[in-house]
Design a protein around this nucleic acid. Structure first.
Length: 323
DNA sequence: CGGGTTTGACCGGCGC
DNA sequence: GCGCCGGTCAAACCCG
């Protein structure tokens, strides 16, 4: 199948709909998330947007997001819609892109039934068949969140411990894709890491699922006294990433809702750091990039302003006022 | 020796 | 049905 140039075209977005300023800001999220409208709503939740229901009734919004979605999806039609940022090519070489995808039920049924056969090969075959039968029902995917990050290293430190379980060559790309699983037992979060081949300085990290536990770095923090550590300090509790320091603090004794909020905060922090790094992209003098960066900033501003009490303390004012 | 990585094989989904 | 491709498995290997 012929691969089509993908990307968010600025001209596809009706940015003159001033009467829909609020909607426009959200539509930017949709556009930059490069996801379908429905998936974008998951992203709204991620960003802490409580009430986005009015947006569903904005025809222009729907049109815009669907339009973009079509552009993105056109390279590989019929693909699993939950696979949003699995792009052979990034949206545009310089665009920032944060993707989210959601799916309903989770099927992590991987039970392998014990066999009493003596023949090893036969046993393995049978196991595989059973496994196949078990997972016969349409495989459901965990929610996914993708980040495009400008970074020298492929595997970005995010505070969790990962075990690599596979690596595959990516079609049309000289860079392989690595598959990681969270090492914590009973936590089936996965992550995919690949480098954009049109802009090798950008790493696309896709998280699948939600951690069922605090990050080890956080636990250490709690263990040594849970003090707020200076940024970029690993030993004293916080942890830094290649794209900036990620939140630190006490993860012990959190209620589930608090923990959920913390996780959300962490995602937001990752998002923020990603956008920050893109703000200093060397190629950001292109008009297309500037245009999209403006949108990005609006997106973050809009989303962050809706985050009552979580992010205002970490978002520098110049980021909020920029452009 | 335990935990992580590498890598070829395998499997399921999908398009033709 | 066949081939391609993304995702996963698991044996072999590596390393502290």
């Amino acid at each position: 199948m012929e691969k089509k140039e993908m990307g968010v075209k600025s001209e596809d977005i009706n940015i003159d709909s001033s009467s829909l300023l609020n909607s426009y800001q959200f539509s930017s999220v949709f556009d930059f998330c490069e996801v379908e409208k429905s998936s974008s709503l998951g992203f709204m939740e991620l960003l802490g947007v409580q009430d986005y229901s009015p947006l569903l009734d904005v025809p222009q919004l729907s049109t815009m997001s669907m339009k973009t979605s079509t552009v993105i999806a056109s390279s590989d039609t019929g693909k699993d819609s939950s696979e949003v940022l699995n792009q052979q090519q990034p949206a545009t070489p310089n665009s920032c892109s944060i993707s989210s995808a959601s799916s309903e039920a989770v099927n992590d049924n991987k039970t392998v039934v014990e066999q009493t056969e003596d023949d090893e090969e036969e046993k393995q075959k049978t196991n595989k068949q059973l496994k196949t039968k078990k997972t016969n029902q349409k495989k459901q995917r965990e929610p996914r969140f993708a980040f495009m990050t400008k970074s020298e290293v492929d595997h970005l430190e995010d505070g969790y411990r990962w075990r690599k379980y596979g690596q595959k060559a990516v079609k049309n790309s000289p860079f392989p894709r690595s598959y990681y699983r969270c090492t914590t037992v009973s936590c089936n979060v996965k992550k995919r890491v690949e480098r954009s081949f049109t802009d090798p300085s950008i790493v696309v990290t896709t998280y699948e699922g939600q951690h069922t536990h605090p990050s080890p770095a956080m636990s250490r923090s709690a263990f040594v006294g849970a003090q707020i550590a200076p940024p970029d300090s690993l030993v004293s509790g916080g942890f830094s990433t290649n794209y900036g320091s990620v939140l630190q603090g006490n993860y012990n004794y959190l209620s589930s809702s608090q923990y959920h909020q913390q996780q959300q905060h962490q995602h937001q922090q990752l998002l923020f750091n990603t956008l920050s790094s893109l703000n200093h992209h060397p190629y950001n003098n292109s008009s297309a990039f500037t245009q999209e960066r403006k949108l990005c900033n609006q997106v973050t501003t809009a989303a962050f302003l809706r985050d009552h009490g979580l992010l205002q303390d970490v978002v520098p004012s110049h980021m909020l006022k920029e452009e």
